[in-house]
């Protein structure tokens, strides 16, 4: 069978599908001071999984606000800098108007994912941290 660390080199998704892969990628991003990219990506997925029902409404609103505040509000943050202004406006409007939709962070997540696929992920595959692991 293919060892997990070789699978991690196939695609970003195969890396993010494996707990050890996530931990190593996170350690690398932390070293590069951009671990927030990965946390934001998972936060978006987690948010989408929260079912919109009466029991969850308060939690979803609180969580949407928390994600917005932590990763998007500060324009100098590593995540915020990688998201298009129109996408940030859209999310801000959703939060302000309390229109909390499961897919409200999807576009921002896609933008961060593309950035990781083009930039941090290929660099990770050439990094000492990955090569030492393999």
């Amino acid at each position: 069978p293919t060892p997990p660390y070789l699978k991690w080199a196939e695609s970003l998704h195969s890396l993010l599908d494996d707990q050890d892969g996530i931990n190593l990628f996170r350690a690398f991003l932390k070293q590069e001071e951009c671990a927030d990219l990965l946390d934001f990506w998972f936060a978006c997925s987690g948010f989408r999984k929260l079912e919109p029902c009466d029991a969850n409404e308060e939690k979803r609103l609180k969580l949407a606000k928390a994600i917005f505040k932590k990763y998007i509000l500060d324009n100098n943050g590593i995540v915020s800098r990688q998201i298009k202004p129109a996408t940030k406006c859209f999310i801000r409007d959703c939060v302000m108007k309390q229109q909390i939709d499961p897919v409200m962070f999807d576009q921002a997540q896609t933008e961060i994912q593309s950035m990781m696929e083009e930039n941090t992920y290929p660099v990770f595959l050439k990094s000492d941290i990955y090569l030492e692991y393999t």
Binding site: Q19, F42, A43, G46, L63, I67
Partner: peptide
């Protein structure tokens, strides 16, 4: 009441793969 950070952490963990 959960703090914002706890809520975020719980959300991030919920999206991670559980089974290796």
């Amino acid at each position: 009441i959960d703090s914002e950070d706890d809520l975020l952490q719980e959300c991030i963990s919920s999206a991670m793969p559980k089974i290796k």
